[in-house]
Design a protein around this nucleic acid. Sequence first.
RNA 1: GCCCGAGUGGCGGAAUUGGUAGACGCGUCGGUCUCAAAAACCGAUGAGGUUAAACUCGUGCCAGUUCGAUCCUGGCCUCGGGUACCA
Length: 927
Amino acid sequence: MEYNFNEIEKKWQRFWAENRTFGAENRSPKPKYYILDMFPYPSGAGLHVGHPLGYIASDIYARYKRLKGFNVLHPMGYDAYGLPAEQYAIQTGQHPAKTTEQNINRYREQLDKLGLSFDWDREVRTCDPRYYKWTQWTFIQLFKHYYDNNAQKAMPISKLVETFEKEGNANVNAACDEKTPQFTAAEWSNFSEKERQEILMHYRIAYLSDSMVNWCAGLGTVLANDEVVNGVSVRGGYPVERKLMRQWSLRVTAYAERLLKGLDEVEWSESLKEIQRNWIGRSEGASVFFPIEGDNRSFEIFTTRPDTIFGVTFMVLCPEHEMIAEITTSEQKAEVEAYVTWAKNRSERERQAEVKKVSGVFTGAFAVNPLTKERIPIWVSDYVLAGYGTGAIMAVPAHDSRDFAFARHFNLPIIQVVVPDGEQPEDTDTWSESKDSKSGTCINSDFINGMPVKKAITAVIDRLVEMGIGQRKINYRLRDAIFSRQRYWGEPFPVYYKDGIPYIMDESELPLMLPEVESYLPTSTGEPPLARAKDWTYKGCPIDYNTMPGFAGSNGYYLRYMDPHNDKEYFSAEAAGYWQCVDLYVGGIEHATGHLLYSRFWNKFLHDIGKSCVEEPFRRLVNQGMIQGRSNFVYRIKGSNKYVSLHLKDNYETDPIHVDINIVDNDVLDLEKFRQWRPEFADAEFILEDGRYICGYEIEKMSKSMFNVQNPDDIVEKYGADTLRMYEMFLGPIEQSKPWDTKGIEGVSRFLKKCWKLYHNADNNFCVSDEEPTAEELKILHRTIKKVSEDIEKMAYNTSVSTFMICVNELTDLKCGKRKILEPLCILLSPFAPHICEELWQLLGHTESVTFATFPTWDEKYLAENNCNYAVSFNGKTRFVVSLPSDMPKEEVERQVLQMPDTQKWLQGNTPKKVIVVPRKIVNIVI
RNA sequence: GCCCGAGUGGCGGAAUUGGUAGACGCGUCGGUCUCAAAAACCGAUGAGGUUAAACUCGUGCCAGUUCGAUCCUGGCCUCGGGUACCA
């Protein structure tokens, strides 16, 4: 073998490990660059070819940046806490720590084979006590702080206590629970310890509360909103119900505005930013108080359309609304109570499935429209949600589709108050749907008649403020993150309970180690597995039995990489000051509303308390696409053990059967291997076409059950890591999802062989000449440098690979074996194919790794085109193209073109009326 | 329903963002070498048309702007993603 990749790759991987070639220094005169991959959850299945896509992409960038003179931090670790390890433990009794360790070792082995330039000295594992100590530490800080809306940042809770002691909480503007009571300084001083702690809990950023949670009985735990899709759990697909439980939450909503604003500062894809914006769901509107008829109280609603207040024909409360019992009339009481009970018992999935079904009940009570003084019936319906706004709405059926459906169903009046642009007022009885458009002119609306909607909104709010019954308000769809899980394999809470009051452990006693238990199941009384731990107490008090959710450990891992061995603090101020933030983050888009949001929140908080240096943790983010599987099929004739080739299958009645892609080559089935594959195929018969069995294919998710998993180890074994790296990049743009297809890999493999030959003579001896390169050779080199540099910056690696191929083909044609061309080319290629380039670099006579070389720069003088193409058009129709010097003046171009025989031919004897010359582009002749 | 994004040969994908569409790779066909095969190398390859050329049509569809549109504008179709009683 001429190019022995197996030997070369092993040699250099060992060299890099022994020499710590990719170690990053926390002090360096070089500029810093931090490149991060989303660390993997080490599952039992190992890596398939889809996983390394992002790792290879970031590795190329990391190697490129090193060559560009940057001190590059490129770490890797493991998100090691999680459900699969625990479920495996429940089934087999094996400790999750053990299986996790095994999986990590397997992952490491696979990653090492790819030649990724990670600084493994900085590895972190979220389940390591030396790591989760700091997850617990951050939780303690979250507990000890509250969010001050005036300062727009987190402040120590002790400051809040000072204010309470001085003046109570009347003037405190902080993020807190809706139900926080008001009190004076005197009342505060008279409160018991328990009462004080309860009040403070309303303000803490990490707080304990009875909240409606997503309870998943199948998993035996609660889940965060982003872990639930369509009423079932993302993991496992078990049904989820709403349940009131005492849980830890993080007050993420306090940061809603900053999370939204921060998106404008980062270089992320527009689609990802949109996903986060929608998830945060900011909407501007007004809160309005509607008095209750015959009662001196009123209730608050939220609306984004205060301009439609003259079209309100009824009000709706959510079934959980606390005023229902108080306002319902005695005649309606039974009916209302029955409805409320029914609505509360309905599962989340039922409710979501029956969204179109209208239900509700009249309370018998009336509200008064504060502007018209009209009486408006108050209804209860579950189309109004408890968790958003105030759980009560003013219904404008003419201009809201949900209110419209409700009004039609219960025969309530519909009044048009907005006429969309270009329309006339209509009889609402004839409508089949409401007119929800936010542009139009107001009618039937007293003082805002004739105003456009936008102006009317402001006018109504101004009036409501004047009357003291409303104000401008901004609402968010974002909810606080539920932070407890009733699971074993996670970080324990550093919290103990004394007299039923939760207290935080002393920071000096961290980490609070995860205790051993005999079984990983919940206890018979339904308590989390940690309740099984023996002698697990703190100062004689019980410790919280919950653990933190999967996303806890990944929130701040990028910060720990900056200073991973620090046992005094999370990370030093010096390390954070040097590395600042992640410059380039590469990972999957599936974390858009989970990790990427929580992590930003976590960082903002750490920034507020002076730990993290910057507000936004991830400056540039690239989402690599998914690699899908390409499944192969054989077609079995019904009721037989006979298999028919793809293009003949329509002549028979067949069943498609998944077949292992490892016994198929370019869609051609290996008949022998197929017979050996499974006993039932041992005596299979075939109907062939052209002597071969052709399999069908389909693009599906890569999964074991579809026998379409491509293991990277096999590819590395057969073609080498450099080929795999380049091929994965050549497949298409990084951000795009695409099917894995081994067909094209031969092309890349050939390219690397050609590359090797460029540096070797016919006898496979290394051979470069010291001859001076020709102008043509220099042009090829500099064109390549330019294109590759620009493409790497954009991470358009697929075109870089093409550029290399063209370059090597051209140099091969010229038989160019000149050092002055091949040396820079070797550096240029090394981020993509590091092993072969290290070998060539050594053969070129260098003793240091190519990692420490300098990336070549291009010189325009070798690129200047002497000629450029002009398209020659007649009356706008381009007829031919001519090549003229690019610096030729317009007048000369015009003169020369007009003299050309082709021009004369197309003029057909006519005289040109006008000639337009667009420099370097076109000559248009008008006849 | 609402909000994003994308539609280019047999396939993956290029195109200096308004200037010769289809780079590069795969596949296919033909050839060189060989007893043969593999490997390697050379040539052809959007469609129609012709002995060959000329020429015509071609970037989801329909219009528009322009001397000129894969690129800009408007409308539609299809696919992918997000979200879903959020008032």
